[in-house]
């Protein structure tokens, strides 16, 4: 946690993990904080720079196999992200970044070590999951349904220390049944790229976790709500 009142958001390794508009999540968090009058600073930390451990929210995005393996190795060696999470930082981990937070994942046919901060591991799926995804989020988080677009070849298996973020109602997610994971203040999801554009309530959850608030003043979400309604309706329902 930062000692002053400025909220610090770090985007982890945009040079490696920024394939699908991942910048959007940083922009959305920054804007939603600013609309509540919360002073906010955003940092893009490249893979050749040390990872600060003093920020409040960390974002990590999607990418291809090579950059994913490289990013995981650098984060393990650096140690800054581990310290930040131990100090209570909030995390949104997407796609390749989500897999990195587990114990292991496959990249270019090789099993790679992850950060081990979520109790899960990822393997190669037989098919690529591409398309709209929808799910009912764990009721303990008190959030409306998840909507997103997924595009990944991995399947993720959760251990007892991680809880699924959502149960899938359209699309694949982790394994066709559950989608994403959460533990403490870490959220992981296959809803890729600018996931917060369609899920402003998740953005606000991260902000609440970061500043330790039970609620935030409401903002005008007319357009995000229209987008949500359209995409939730567009996601093909699961075969019964």
């Amino acid at each position: 946690m930062s000692t002053d009142s400025t909220l610090r958001i770090v985007w982890i390794y945009p040079d490696l993990l920024s394939t699908y508009g991942d910048r959007g999540n940083m922009l959305i968090l920054g804007r939603r904080a600013a609309m509540r009058g919360i002073p906010v600073e955003t940092y893009e930390v490249r893979s050749d720079q040390p990872m600060p451990s003093s920020a409040d929210i960390y974002l990590i995005g999607g990418g291809e196999d090579g950059p994913q393996a490289l990013a995981s190795q650098r984060l393990i060696n650096d140690g800054g992200l581990h310290r930040a999470v131990n100090q209570g930082a909030a995390v949104l981990a997407i796609c390749a970044g989500y897999q990195i937070f587990g114990h292991s994942f496959f990249a270019k046919g090789t099993k790679c070590a992850g950060l081990g901060m979520l109790d899960l591991h990822s393997t190669r799926g037989e098919t690529r999951a591409v398309g709209e995804i929808r799910g009912d989020i764990d009721p303990r988080l008190g959030l409306p349904p998840l909507t997103g677009f997924e595009n990944h070849g991995g399947r993720t298996h959760l251990g007892p220390g991680a809880t699924p973020l959502a149960s899938v109602t359209a699309g694949i997610g982790n394994d066709g049944h559950t989608e994403g994971a959460w533990h403490g203040k870490i959220l992981g999801t296959y809803s890729h790229g600018p996931a917060l554009a369609r899920n402003p309530a998740i953005a606000d959850l991260l902000l609440r976790w970061a500043i330790g608030a039970d609620s935030l003043s409401p903002v005008d979400d007319t357009w995000p709500e229209r987008l949500r309604a359209e995409r939730l309706a567009a996601a093909a329902p699961r075969q019964a």
Binding site: R23, G131, F149, G193, P194, A197
Partner: peptide
Amino acid sequence: GLDTSWLWD
């Protein structure tokens, strides 16, 4: 392409 994520790039 079915994915609009690129709008954020």
